[in-house]
Design a protein around this nucleic acid. Structure first.
Lengths: 196, 196
DNA sequence: GCTGCGCATTGAACTAGTTCAAGAAGTTGC
DNA sequence: GCAACTTCTTGAACTAGTTCAATGCGCAGC
């Protein structure tokens, strides 16, 4: 295996959530599979079943779906130290409605369903780690929903820039507009206004 | 304890998620505390720490927060067989930003943090049940976010009516407007248009 | 060093949704 | 049976955000 596949980042992630023994850690390592993906390639397409959950070692991706008019609607931009996948598709074995595209060449760990179950069985503490992870996702997406309902696009853009200052250097602006729920043209106008 | 506090609904909920032994079920019952609340009373207010998670045996509630302008923004309308609470406040022991108000006289089971941890320790299967519950919440709120970003208010209203046809009989229309992220006046206009 | 493409910007016309003020209708309290 | 309150509706003026078409700019390919 290539030395780019380091356990140190994901181990640090685990350690921030739960305490495990060296043996448990080895078992965890044994079920992780390495994955590389090139810029512009898709990790998942709508209609496919999401068979893995992914942890980003390095790189930057974009998950999105197509709305009824066929427009891409961006959901998140997973970067280093994030988990991604389509939880619903993964859990219930149903076709995903998401696309996941690499925005940069990216290096990931992945874990399949069967092994995830096996992990929960052997090391129940991981059930907690994944519960905490989902809980954080839930809190984040709740905040985003409330912002979308109750705040103007300008406020949402400013909050996005504060929360993810590094993303705009890695992701084209029209994708950020779609994430914010506005058109690229309107985002451009917001930026002009804020610049003055 | 009043006979209104029946275990049958919550037992059915548990059975749909996990398999447990009679002893485990008894232990689960032993940590449930009964709670009744009258219409217009608050179960939680912003600033308080949410010490319980609640399961609705009967009744109907409303969770909301106040936006920057002081407007109430409705989040959900928990009814029979739903869980509610402020997960973030409950988990991290931080002040909640939510209000929870009873829209009808309601009957609930509640479970506190300490006992929830104890439950996870004694019966790890419950860790799974709560993970599944959060996962479903996550999927639901994701759908709602995408609808809010990519669909018109009219579409969102129609989907709400399909998904929760019983709610409008229990909740005033202006609260539904706030849930949908629009003004009561505009919802009224949508209804007029759809009626014709 | 040109060609073509993806990306950001601009302006004008438009539409979805808001705000405010007023009025009607149903409900609750006493 | 009236008063007070809450809810829903309506219309007119307004604003946030969209759509469409055009322009310019940087940069990758050859």
């Amino acid at each position: 295996m290539n030395e780019a596949f380091s356990y140190s980042e994901i181990d640090a992630y685990v350690d921030r959530c739960i305490a495990i023994t060296p043996e448990e850690r080895s078992f965890f390592h044994s079920i992780l599979e390495p994955k590389t993906i090139e810029r512009k390639q898709h990790l998942l397409r709508a209609g496919e079943i999401c068979r893995y959950e992914y942890y980003v070692i390095s790189g930057c991706l974009r998950s999105y779906y197509l709305d009824e008019k066929g427009n891409e609607v961006n959901i998140m931009f997973p970067v280093e130290d994030w988990w991604l996948g389509d939880l619903v598709s993964f859990t219930y074995n149903i076709p995903s409605s998401l696309y996941i595209e690499a925005m940069e060449d990216s290096i990931l760990w992945m874990i399949n369903q069967e092994n995830k179950e096996l992990l929960f069985e052997k090391v129940p503490a991981f059930e907690r780690m994944f519960r905490l992870m989902i809980q954080r996702s839930l809190a984040a997406i709740q905040n985003r929903l409330y912002a979308t309902i109750a705040k103007t696009a300008e406020q949402r853009y400013q909050e996005f820039m504060e929360k993810y200052p590094a993303i705009p250097q890695r992701i084209p602006q029209h994708h950020i507009a779609s994430y914010l729920g506005i058109t690229p043209e309107f985002l451009s106008k917001i930026r002009r206004k804020l610049a003055s």
